[in-house]
């Protein structure tokens, strides 16, 4: 073997090591979820279950957590995420079009505002928003939470979408206008199909934002059957300490959809990050 081959093997080995470190905690979660209790608390833990079992998943999906079915938590989380995706997606398309297609007064101010707003600590906003929603009688309601999530997902969605709108050649819209299409028709038939991939990517990010959010859901929701998956997880973790099998089974069910979505958008995101990185 010459020096170059040795170096390539070395780099690949290093790459595999990085892969292992990055994936290990999630792999361990999944592996624990399938292990019978003796194996979970064995003094010599093994990477894979020797006798894989579905008992922990059966427990979580069958018994539910705190007398409430797992599917209720899942439904709450899914509904919230769906509402967030739809509304923030719609508003983001409008605002992104304004920013990418028009030059107007306060445009730069608007863009700077979007940047600032993304950095505001939500951990601080939870106090006043709790009071506001309480006064509106929207505490302990998924609708109130959805409104808040829409606000959180919106700035980043606009920021991401505007690049996609700007990348659509203006000539296409002009051609449609010359052919007699009105602005609404032009938007629906020309612009919307072309920015669809961008819309998919932003939707997935809004989805993950709503799906993962913990502190607001934890603060706002009182009734067990309104809990979202992260609040259920916190409750379960706090009340069933050391029942690691079921806890890891529930974590797996909460985590895998997010990882799947993330891997779908990863390529788009990396390329979105690439362009214009160094403008000299």
């Amino acid at each position: 073997m010459n020096g170059r081959t040795v170096r390539r093997y070395g780099l690949n080995a290093l790459g595999l090591a990085v892969f292992a470190v990055a994936v290990f905690p999630v792999a361990w979660m999944i592996s624990t979820a399938f292990k019978p209790n003796e194996e979970i608390f064995s003094t010599t833990p093994r990477p894979l279950p020797a006798e894989p079992t579905l008992e922990h998943f059966d427990y979580v999906l069958g018994n539910g957590i705190a007398e409430v079915s797992f599917w209720t938590y899942l439904r709450n989380s899914a509904l919230l995420a769906l509402a967030t995706v739809l509304v923030s997606g719609l508003l983001a398309v409008l605002a992104a079009t304004a920013v990418a297609r028009f030059r107007f007064r306060f445009r730069t101010t608007f863009l700077i505002m979007l940047l600032v707003v993304q950095m505001v600590p939500l951990e601080a906003l939870v106090i006043p928003l709790f009071l506001d929603l309480k006064q509106l009688g929207m505490i302990n309601s998924l609708a109130g939470l959805a409104v808040v999530y829409i606000g959180f997902a919106l700035p980043f969605s606009i920021w991401m979408l505007r690049g996609f709108v700007a990348a659509v050649p203006r000539e296409l819209e002009e051609a449609a206008a010359i052919d007699g299409a009105g602005p609404v028709r032009t938007f629906l038939r020309v612009l919307l199909p072309l920015i669809a991939p961008g819309l998919v990517a932003t939707s997935i990010f809004s989805f993950i934002t709503a799906w993962n959010e913990f502190i607001f859901a934890f603060t706002f929701l009182d009734d067990q059957d309104k809990y979202t998956l992260p609040v259920m997880m916190q409750y379960f973790f706090g009340n069933a300490s050391n029942e690691w099998g079921p806890i890891m089974a529930a974590s797996t069910l909460l985590t895998l959809p997010v990882i799947a979505f993330f891997l779908i958008v990863q390529r788009r995101m990396v390329s979105g990050l690439t362009t214009g990185a160094v403008k000299g």
């Binding site: 990055a22 905690p25 999630v26 993962n212 913990f214 985590t255 990882i259 979505f261 993330f262 891997l263």
Partner: peptide, 10 residues
């Protein structure tokens, strides 16, 4: 990406 995608709570 798997590490990045894992929700903070889990």
């Amino acid at each position: 990406m798997v590490a990045w995608a894992t929700p903070p709570i889990t």
